[in-house]
């Protein structure tokens, strides 16, 4: 048995070369790829852990935000309730004032209406009283009444100042003598005589009729009017009633 040292050397070199080549083309690339993938897996796990922690942080942030939302909503509800209560109170006060104003206006209107009504009733009552008195006085018209009114007129003329009677008597225009009904010629002559006597001399008289007098005898000159009739008396009574009310 012999050893071929040349072949041994060639084989040693061959195997050494094979070790280098396989290390260059197989063992190193594959092991580096394994290391890269392990690194990638570790990096991926680290990233996943980081993202998980980030997600946890985001979740916690969301939870805090939601808690803040609830707190803010509660505060907003409280504020809204407070505002609503204040607005309700303001509206109540406004409504109360409006109702009081309307009540005051109603009371004032009621007072005005009541005063107007009372005034109306008083006016009606006065008119009714005057009307009743006029009707009653109308039944008293006659010769006797006419003589009484004539005597009152004469008295009134005599009560006038002298200057007034002279001025009226010396006036160029005629003095109107107004009666409620047409006077008879005797009554006219009687009246002319008494009136002229009262003025102290001749005077021109113009007799005319005014039914509104009811009864009586009045004198009307340009600057003098002597009321002497039921109408004037009733008017005076009504004025007195109005003044008294």
């Amino acid at each position: 048995m012999q050893i071929d040292w040349t072949t041994l050397a060639i084989q040693a070199i061959n195997i050494a070369i094979l070790i280098w080549l396989l290390g260059r083309f197989f063992w190193r690339p594959v092991s580096e790829m394994i290391a890269q993938r392990r690194m990638l897996a570790a990096q991926t796990l680290a990233d996943a852990e980081a993202k998980r922690q980030q997600a946890d942080a985001s979740l916690a942030e969301i939870a805090r935000t939601r808690a803040g939302f609830a707190q803010e909503r509660s505060a907003m509800l409280d504020a809204a309730q407070t505002d609503a209560a204040a607005l309700l109170e303001a509206k109540r006060e406004e409504t109360r004032q409006l109702v009081q104003s309307m009540l005051a206006q109603a009371h004032a209107a009621q007072e005005t209406y009541r005063a107007d009504a009372e005034a109306g009733w008083e006016s009606n009552a006065r008119d009714l009283a005057v009307s009743i008195a006029a009707r009653l006085a109308a039944r008293l018209s006659g010769e006797a009444v006419q003589e009484v009114f004539l005597s009152w007129l004469v008295a009134a003329i005599r009560a006038l100042p002298e200057a007034t009677r002279v001025a009226v008597a010396s006036a160029e225009t005629a003095v109107d003598v107004i009666s409620a009904a047409q006077l008879s010629p005797e009554a006219t002559a009687e009246a002319t005589r008494h009136i002229a006597a009262a003025f102290g001399g001749a005077i021109r008289l113009n007799f005319r009729v005014d039914a509104a007098l009811i009864a009586g005898l009045e004198l009307s000159a340009p600057h003098l009017v002597l009321r002497n009739s039921w109408q004037a008396d009733l008017a005076q009574i009504a004025a007195g009633l109005t003044h008294a009310s």
């Binding site: 060639i10 084989q11 080549l21 396989l22 197989f26 790829m33």
Partner: peptide, 30 residues
């Protein structure tokens, strides 16, 4: 230098291993 049968077979095995390794690891990926 005498080349024996064993050396030739060794070369063949080397060629197969190296070429095969080179081709197999040409497209390594993650």
């Amino acid at each position: 230098v005498p080349i024996t049968n064993g050396v030739v077979v060794t070369w063949a095995i080397m060629a197969v291993l190296v070429i095969g390794a080179q081709r197999a690891t040409r497209h390594l990926s993650l």
